[in-house]
Amino acid sequence: MATIPDQLRSNAVATLLDELRVKYGKLSRTGKLYGLIVADQDAKVLAANTFFHHKLNYWDVGAIGAALYGVGKQARDFFQAQDLDRATLIFGDFMFFTHIIGTVSLGENPNQTRELILISIGERNINLGLVVMLMQKFAPRILHQVEHDEKARNQMRMSESEFTHHLEDLKKQLFSLTESSIGGII
């Protein structure tokens, strides 16, 4: 059963994420990449790779990634440091990266911008250098793709309540069986 709506795993950005994963697989012999997600700084998930690990909740991964970005930004203010590049969490069996891709403008108003983040999660023994290099390499392509994707930009423009309705629609795509011949659960 699909755990991620088609809208998120079959768009052009998701295709890039699939390409990144395949490249990693070809170049590295160690460690598995469990999932890749592109989200904005408000944790609005825009794309996920096709083979996102079925036991991981893509929504929680997006929220943790955005929170990590928020903590990083806060720390930057405290330390008066330069812009945040990447934040990493290392667990006994997992590694989690939040990589800052760049800023997307959402309208004519120069203040209406969102930062995009690329989140990757994998086994503890993944090739760290390779993952970082690939994330850096794919970042401009993902940014370019999102900048030209009106659907993604609309999603980022949504208010919190509009986004809640949007999520409900996405959930219906996954769980509704109303149109099937065997009846429905909704």
Binding site: Q41, D42, A43, A63, A67, G70, V71, F78, S159, E160
Partner: peptide, 15 residues
């Protein structure tokens, strides 16, 4: 302490 807020651009608390 200075305090911190980890929030979205709409000022909704994220964490």
């Amino acid at each position: 302490s200075e305090g911190f807020s980890i929030a979205t651009t709409d000022e909704r608390t994220l964490w």
